[in-house]
């Protein structure tokens, strides 16, 4: 029944880009939950009165929430112990109701390590976060490349 040719080398599968992840629209309750779970209690993310007093129209999402969502793209792709480094720049704040999509693209493979460019984008194309990760490939991939 299986039509997968047995000649497909495993590394071809192993080095495919991770699957992108699209999240539900950011809600106030998601931010309240993340504030408690993450220990980031900055009122700018949960208290509209405070956000307005600071010059914002409304509360906005924690940058670390987007980074955690994006981290799920990595950990859903390979075992977490293979992640050597993971870093991001927060470009603009993520407003309430925004629907982020997280993605990663392999840009280099060297010495058994893959470098990925990472992105979180909103539906209108706004890039809220860009980053990089370095991951260890499985030993057979290193051999295969």
């Amino acid at each position: 029944m299986s039509s997968t040719p047995e000649t497909v080398p495993p590394e071809t599968v192993m080095v495919a880009d991770p699957d992108p992840l699209t999240l539900d629209p950011i809600s106030r309750s998601a931010l309240a939950l993340f504030a408690g779970a993450s220990g980031d209690h900055n009122p700018i993310h949960i208290d509209i009165d405070f956000a307005r007093s600071a010059g914002f129209d409304d509360v906005f999402a924690h940058g670390m929430l987007s980074m955690a969502y994006l981290g799920r793209v990595l950990t859903g792709w390979l075992p977490q112990e293979r992640i050597r480094s993971y870093g991001v720049r927060f470009a603009v704040v993520t407003p309430l109701g925004a629907k982020p999509t997280c993605s990663g693209t392999i840009v280099a493979i060297e010495d058994g390590l893959a470098t990925l460019d990472l992105l979180v984008q909103l539906e209108d194309g706004t890039v809220t976060l860009s980053g990089t990760a370095t991951v260890e490939l499985a030993p057979e991939v290193e051999q295969g490349r």
């Binding site: 900055n42 700018i44 956000a51 940058g63 670390m64 993971y86 991001v88 720049r89």
Partner: peptide, 11 residues
Amino acid sequence: MGAVLHGEQHF
């Protein structure tokens, strides 16, 4: 605190 933004985070 209202003037603070998270610019970058690396691990």
